[in-house]
Amino acid sequence: MNTIINYLDNMFASLPKSAEMRHLRDELLANMEEKYHELKQVGKTENEAVGIVISEFGNIDEIIEEFGVSLEEDRVTNPLLTEVEVEEYLNTTRKSGRWIGIGVTLCILGAAMLVLLLGVIENGYNEISSETGTYLGLIVLLLFVAIAVGLFIYAGMKLEKYKFISFEGDFDLSMDLKNKVRAKKDAFQSTYMIVMIVGVILIIFSPIVLFTMMAFNENTANFGVCIMLVLVSIAVYLFVYFGNVYAAYEKLLRGKSKRTNEREEDRVIGAVASIIWPLVVIIFLISGLVYDQWHINWIVFPVTGLLFAMFSGAYSILVRKD
């Protein structure tokens, strides 16, 4: 049966992917399927059945003439992805999404650890001086960041192989495969929505924890910040991981024309991110080490996060409008 589906998809590969053609393809497939099963029932072998069905298909030129479809102009024949490749792509993005998510979480947790350590010292468990504590915390932070960078590089290398899908979009999917991917995406949609809502709730909820704790006891500010950062890091993990999986489905389903704009958009946002975030870390470290503002300077992370989200959101909308 797969031979028949492949045959049909190859026949339709050069035709425009309009709703009319998709519908026609589905109708033809249903007929061929029925014919195939009837042939199998009367005792034909797999090969015979497939052979007869295909020989009775006819000539796709007839369809082109009768339906007056124009073959897509300047159509670069992109390679058709196989089902195995699609599976692998989805698996790889899932895995690297997990690694990137863990990396980002580690960065935030590193900062949380630093704040926590300072809090512990401030609250009188001062077997260690606050200076040693600060350096200890910094070491933990830098260690976590180092691991995170390692994870980013690893995930990036894994994804490198699939650049032609994620960035260039030089591929096509057979209609059958497209339907399968679409079905998977639809199945994933509700999980994705719930997770995104949970993430947003966590983010909104996190400062409330901090303020409540501070209202009861001034001294717990550091622990409050720590819990807040942990909540934020969980939310960020959810955004990164599930966002990655979702984006992978979208990239598989999207047409090439739509993708060029988005590519530009991804590049600009990526470039800004790669400048902004290290800059924020530098500001965080300098304000802490030089001006000793550890108690408040963590705020640069959530503030930058919010500003960055606003920027990328606004930028996407502006670019897409054109």
């Binding site: 026609l24 061929m32 009775e56 298909f57 006819g58 000539n59 796709i60």
Partner: peptide, 9 residues
């Protein structure tokens, strides 16, 4: 035996 493409045309 009518071909699929002929039928749908």
């Amino acid at each position: 035996i009518i071909k699929e493409t002929t039928l749908y045309s």
